[in-house]
């Protein structure tokens, strides 16, 4: 418990250990810690940036998807329209064709009717003439009464 040279010994030792710490211990450890701090900060920044990039990419994907869907919808729409057009066209063509066929048939029918009527009339004239000849027993001059008979036939 007496003060003695231990005091000086401890002072010298203390100074030496301060110097050793100052020279060999403190700088490398603090430098490493500062570097780690920087690296962590950089890493966090990079992560932030990556996150932002990811967000951007996601947004782009969504945009592209929407535009693709829109395009697809447009194409389908057009196709539908074209299909309807084609059907309409086909219908129109069919109707025209039907009309044409109907008209041709009608004309043929008309022709046949008038021909039949003509034939019938001619046959009726002949029949009427033959009937009248039988009734009048040739008292009628064919030439004199031709006009009358013709008139009769026309009325049939």
């Amino acid at each position: 418990m007496n003060l003695n040279a231990t005091l000086i010994g401890q002072m010298v030792a203390f100074v030496i250990f301060i110097y050793l710490t100052y020279r060999f211990v403190w700088p490398p450890i603090v430098a490493a810690m500062a570097e780690r701090t920087k690296r962590i900060a950089d890493g966090l920044q990079a992560a932030d940036k990556a996150e932002k990039d990811l967000e951007l990419a996601k947004q782009k994907v969504v945009e592209q998807l929407t535009s693709a869907k829109k395009e697809a919808a447009a194409i389908i729409d057009q196709a539908n329209k074209r299909a309807i057009e084609i059907v309409e066209e086909a219908k129109e063509k069919a109707r025209v064709e039907a009309d044409r066929v109907k008209a041709a048939a009608q004309a043929e029918i008309d022709q046949a009717t008038s021909r039949a009527r003509e034939e019938l009339r001619a046959k009726v004239v002949t029949l009427a003439l033959a009937g009248a000849e039988k009734i009048l027993e040739s008292s009628i001059d064919q030439n004199a009464h031709n006009e009358l008979v013709n008139k009769l036939a026309a009325q049939l």
């Binding site: 040279a5 030792a13 250990f17 050793l20 450890i29």
Partner: peptide, 28 residues
């Protein structure tokens, strides 16, 4: 008197100082 040295405490003090320095130096 003054010119004597406490071998035990001085020795332990130096030893512990060295322990401190060597531990920290080995890490550094």
């Amino acid at each position: 008197g003054f010119w004597a040295i406490n071998v035990d405490t001085m020795g332990w003090s130096l030893f512990l100082g060295l322990v401190f320095f060597l531990i920290f130096r080995s890490v550094a």
